[in-house]
Amino acid sequence: MTPARLYTLLGILVAGLFLAALLTGVAAVDPVTALRALMTGGEGPVGIVMREIRLPRALLAAMVGACLGLSGAALQGLLRNPMAEPGVIGISAAAGLGAVLALQTGLAAAYAFALPAAALVGALAGVGAILFLAGAGGGTLALILAGIALSALCSAATALVLNLSPNPFAAQDIVFWMMGSLADVSFTHVLLAAPLMALGAFLLWRTGPGLEALTLGEEAAASMGVNLARLRLSVVLGTAAAVGAATAVAGTVGFVGLVVPHVLRPLVNAHPSRLLPAAALGGAGLVLAADIAVRLVLPGQDLKIGVLLALVGAPVFLHLIWRMRGAA
């Protein structure tokens, strides 16, 4: 399959899922009325449901998915390891801790943008810790173990901060920060996350040629004129911005960056530069599909999106481990 054809197919898939997400919800509205209300604002509550509830939710699902897919593909390219994924190696958990700290200290109430910014700082610290512990090009085992430790530490700190809150509902928020959810997001969240997501996507997008060269090894890439330090910095900053912004508004949405590149890599002949756009589109599609599924499985209840993604993602993860065992 040519890259152009793949991107087109994925684009059509995302567009279809986006439409389906707009038409999914507890309020029984027929598709024609729903879309008309979306376009014109409609009369009465249907317009509010479409424009203020479903549209931002679908937009954010696509944006979060694209960010996570892109981050997964870029991290895997940089570390040359198919298991590198923001959720699995603890970067999302670190971002979540940053966001929770911003919320509980009141910083996010004073400056709305402090929420994604703090998540970015958390994610940055997470990526930094992982690179320090497991190293670029380090072994898979070191990467996974460092990720487990970072995840456990950040999740525990998040739980501690939320348990210290005087609000009785704060402790229940632990589930949101660990499993993620797009329920009842609004355009406030979209606007809050969009700038950092755009920055992250821009930085990651440009790493394609560098990652391509890196498949031949660091020395070969350097001899081809790739500035490795700059490439590494782009991936680190890009991932921190994209994952931080996504986590700040949707909690920890795991496995997207693992599953999507895993499925799409054979279709792009393992070219990192082609995998990046494909993974962005695929991630958007996967999160849209998962967010439709949570609303169909348990309508009216907030089934966390991370539950479904883990059901899909964990078997892929196990498969990767199985294959690694075979190779060893």
């Binding site: 509010i48 449901v49 203020e52 509830i53 919320l103 509980q104 009141g106 996010a108 109430a109 809150s165 005087p166 609000n167 009785p168 509902f169 704060a170 229940q172 928020d173 949101f176 920060w177 329920a183 009842d184 609004s186 355009f187 406030t188 909690g251």
Partner: peptide
């Protein structure tokens, strides 16, 4: 509302809809 301290569970009470 339970309390003015922020909780994600109560964020939905601020939804623009």
């Amino acid at each position: 509302r339970a309390d003015p301290a922020p909780a994600h569970s109560e964020a939905v009470l601020d939804h623009p809809a």
